[in-house]
């Protein structure tokens, strides 16, 4: 398969950035650390043999038993050479230094907002890190494994005395 050529190039040049590789199910997955992530992705985009010019997808997976429980998977694709490599990177939820790829790929902008919304991982250097699918005042991050499927606050949990709880809200349309 063509992608294995890309993998061999990455292994030759960027061996120090790679923790492990996995080629099961005909997909190529490369695991790296958050310190080396930007360097590795930049190399993959700029090297003339590889030319990964499209960040096709970016998403998170939650493994609650691990210490670094969020695994972010980058789906990188080269439109010129038809290579597809998944770069994986693990992180804690409250990691302060997790790098953003918005300076390298434009499409990372919305995808990283989605990961922040659904998993709570904050990307350092993102220009506009806000919730994208859930409302801004949403509580919690739904795709974490410890977030229940159906969550409704019980009457005890509701704080009726909180300021503005039952007041009519001003949406600026008066």
């Amino acid at each position: 398969m063509e992608t294995f050529f890309a993998l061999s190039v990455i292994k030759d040049v960027m061996q120090r950035c790679i923790i492990s590789t996995d080629t099961s199910n005909d997909d190529v997955r490369v695991t790296t650390t958050k310190e080396n992530l930007v360097e590795l992705v930049k190399f993959m985009k700029e090297d003339s043999r590889l030319n990964f010019d499209m960040l096709s997808d970016l998403f998170g997976v939650d493994y609650p038993k691990r210490t670094e429980r969020i695994e972010v998977i980058y789906n990188l694709y080269s439109t010129k050479n038809n290579f597809r490599i998944f770069v994986k990177c693990q992180s804690k939820i409250d990691e302060p230094d997790y790098p953003s790829l918005t300076s390298i790929y434009e499409s990372a902008n919305w995808f990283e907002r989605e990961v922040y919304d659904l998993f709570g991982l904050k990307f350092k250097g993102h220009p506009h890190l806000e919730r994208i699918l859930n409302p801004e005042d949403w509580d919690g991050h739904p795709l974490l494994k410890d977030y229940p499927l159906r969550k409704r606050p019980s009457v005890e949990e509701l704080n009726f005395d909180a300021p503005g709880f039952l007041e009519e809200k001003d949406f600026g349309n008066k």
């Binding site: 994208i132 859930n134 795709l143 977030y147 499927l149």
Partner: peptide
């Protein structure tokens, strides 16, 4: 976006 969000990726896990 997000006005039609129903968290289908979460539903699929169940």
């Amino acid at each position: 976006i997000g006005y039609l969000h129903t968290s289908m990726e979460k539903y699929a896990e169940f």
